[in-house]
């Protein structure tokens, strides 16, 4: 263990406190005697349930779509890969509201894709749970792609090359060699995507709207509650913090192993 320069201790402590103190403040502010009642109102439970369901759906969508994308980014040698990668990372730096607006302009009733779906199939995306999942996938996908691509690059291609010389087809190599090797990265990437989906707010409220049981996820519920019942908002915020901490702990322990 190398020693840390003394100069770094103060800013390091400040950085930690900047995150820790507000969260601790939340715990202090909670109306503990009524906590259980506040977090089990039908509206709160509906929001929690919707958040967990859409978060899981988002995670699956990220795996099914983002997984292959990460493999392509890490293993193929297509020209223009840096450009492809920058586009995938865009939601990381874009304000989620902007993401929501772009989705609305595409899938909205007057948008090019939205009007087509409405006309041909009678499908309208805005104001539906599908819209919530789309918005969450938009913002959460880069987390999976980045983690998985990193894991793939760190693992290298040696095992895959050996498998190929032993006669394994590319598909067999992928399933029997690559996936097991990067499994920890895949897991932590999925968990991160789930966590990001759980906290998603801006894109969801802009694109999907806010209706109990259909589109009002936990963050939207908390924002609405903060307008009328601050105690309820604080209580549910704490629930969200606890879920987030659990998610981080789960993904970290996988990393350490």
């Amino acid at each position: 263990m190398t020693s840390v320069p003394r100069l770094l201790w103060a800013p390091a402590a400040l950085a930690w406190l900047l995150v820790a103190i507000p969260v601790a403040g939340l715990v202090v502010r909670v109306d503990w005697p009524n906590f259980l009642g506040l977090v089990t109102t039908p509206s709160a439970l509906a929001a929690l349930r919707l958040s967990l369901e859409t978060g899981l759906a988002t995670m699956v969508l990220c795996l099914v779509l983002g997984g292959p994308l990460a493999v392509v980014l890490a293993r193929s040698s297509l020209p223009g890969l840096p450009f492809v990668r920058s586009v995938v990372l865009l939601p990381l730096v874009l304000p989620p509201v902007v993401g929501g607006l772009t989705l609305l302009f595409l899938f909205g009733r007057t948008g090019p894709l939205g009007s087509f779906l409405d006309r041909e199939f009678g499908i309208t995306i805005p104001f539906s749970t599908t819209a919530v999942v789309l918005a969450q996938t938009f913002v959460a996908m880069p987390f999976l792609v980045v983690s998985l691509e990193g894991a793939l690059r760190t693992a290298g291609e040696r095992y895959e090359a050996v498998a190929a010389t032993l006669g394994a087809s590319p598909a067999t190599t992928l399933w029997r060699v690559t996936v097991p090797v990067v499994l920890p990265g895949l897991m932590s990437g999925s968990v991160l995507a789930f966590a990001r989906a759980l906290g998603e707010f801006g894109a969801t409220i802009t694109f999907a709207g806010s209706l109990e049981g259909t589109t009002r996820t936990l963050p939207l519920f908390i924002y609405l509650e903060s307008e009328s019942d601050l105690d309820g908002a604080v209580a549910m915020s704490l629930v969200l913090v606890v879920v987030a901490i659990l998610v981080i702990v789960v993904s970290r322990t996988r990393d350490l192993r």
């Binding site: 104001f127 999907a208 709207g209 209706l211």
Partner: peptide, 20 residues
């Protein structure tokens, strides 16, 4: 039976203005 209950009145206005 609204499709969405917005956080503020501008949210409602935007939904109508964008045709959604």
């Amino acid at each position: 039976t609204p499709a969405s209950e917005e956080q503020d009145v501008k949210g409602v206005l935007n939904r109508v203005q964008t045709g959604n």
